[in-house]
Simulated assay, not measured.
Amino acid sequence: MEFEAYLTSKKIDPETFQKADNARFQEWRSIFETMHPESFTAHKKFLINEIRRRYHLKED
């Protein structure tokens, strides 16, 4: 699974996230590439919720 697809599945807008907080985006991408998506979710659970509130994916 690609990192951007993962973010979309978590209802996080990857473009907005990358533009607003590129350092964290790149850090998370490199960590994501080294672990299973479920492990990444468990590792970043509370931070994912914070990021989701900031960069919520607009649904059509």
Rank of each mutant, 00 (worst) to 15 (best):
E38F: 12
F46E: 14
T16I: 11
K44F: 14
K45S: 14
L7E: 03
R29P: 00
E15M: 04
Q18C: 06
A5T: 07
L7C: 07
F3V: 03
Q26Y: 01
F46C: 02
Q26H: 00
K44Y: 12
K44G: 04
R24K: 13
E50W: 12
Q18I: 05
P14W: 04
A20I: 03
H56A: 15
M1R: 04
W28K: 10
F3L: 03
S30G: 00
E33R: 13
F32Y: 13
K11H: 09
T8P: 02
E33C: 04
I31V: 14
E4C: 01
Q26K: 11
K45I: 00
P14E: 04
E50V: 13
Q26I: 11
E38A: 10
L7S: 03
D13K: 07
A42E: 12
D13E: 10
E59Y: 09
A20V: 07
N49T: 09
Y55K: 04
Y6V: 05
E38Q: 13
F40I: 05
I48Q: 06
Q18M: 08
L7R: 00
Q26T: 11
P14I: 04
W28H: 06
W28M: 15
T16F: 06
F25W: 10
F32G: 07
E4F: 00
E2K: 06
P14G: 08
S30E: 09
P14D: 04
E15K: 12
R29F: 03
K11V: 05
R53L: 14
M1F: 06
I31G: 05
F25D: 02
S30F: 00
Y6H: 09
H36Q: 11
